[in-house]
Simulated assay, not measured.
Amino acid sequence: MIRPATQEKYSELVDFAESIRLNEFNSLPIRDGLDMLHGVCASTQWGQLMLAARPFSDIDDVLRHADRILTELPVAEIDAARDAHARIGDSVDNASEAREQAGVADATRSVRERLAEGNRAYEEKFGYIYLVFATGKTGEEMATILTDRLHNDPETERRVMISELGKINRLRLQQLLAEPIAEGSS
């Protein structure tokens, strides 16, 4: 167990380390920033507006702006961001989505079939892929959520989908700002 005084020092070090990374992010050239943010959200406009909002004072400030900007995007930009995600249960070719959908990797054949059938029904009903904040969820949980969301009307489901996209963006931003900026990015 960490003693309170040690915990306080640890928290200060973590805050200091985050602010260094945040300062690096705040000073990235636009092209590098856009490339980096595209890995978080495929909406070019979202990335541009995020960079225009710099400098950020802390990670919470970044997350607040990310949420606000996402909710203000036009439909086409939301669609571009959503459509860049892999279908839940399909093969994934990027590390972020593989980590996020790790719960499907151990799913039974029955769960995978439910996801595939649910995905088809969802796309038929709503006209776009099922998007869910998958991190920490099992394949079974994602299949159950999918089944439940099939009962939503289109307007409700669009709000839910945007909320899930926001959760994914937040996690990816937190991970981005927790890693040092790569050499040569400047």
Rank of each mutant, 00 (worst) to 15 (best):
L49A: 07
I129G: 12
K167E: 08
D32G: 12
L177D: 05
R31G: 14
L165C: 01
A107C: 00
E123R: 15
I20Q: 13
L37I: 07
E179D: 10
A17W: 15
Y130W: 06
L146H: 02
R21H: 06
E97A: 09
V160T: 11
T108C: 00
A86S: 15
N152S: 08
W46F: 09
S27I: 09
G166P: 04
D148S: 11
T44M: 15
L34W: 01
S163F: 09
E113L: 01
D35R: 10
V160A: 09
E8I: 04
T144E: 13
A95E: 12
S96E: 15
D79N: 12
A134C: 03
V14E: 12
P180S: 08
G139H: 01
R109F: 00
L115R: 01
S91W: 10
L28C: 10
T108P: 02
Y130G: 02
E24G: 10
V92N: 06
D67S: 10
G184I: 03
E141R: 07
L70E: 04
V104H: 02
L173R: 00
R170A: 09
G136C: 01
S57Q: 15
G103K: 04
Q101C: 05
N26G: 09
F25Y: 13
P180I: 04
M36I: 11
S11H: 12
L34K: 08
G39L: 11
K125T: 13
N26E: 10
I181S: 09
T6K: 11
E157H: 07
E140L: 01
L51C: 03
T71D: 15
Q7P: 00
L51D: 04
N152V: 03
I145H: 14
R99N: 14
Q48E: 13
S19H: 15
N169F: 05
D148L: 11
C41G: 06
P74V: 07
T138Y: 01
F56E: 07
I78T: 08
G118V: 02
H85S: 06
P4S: 07
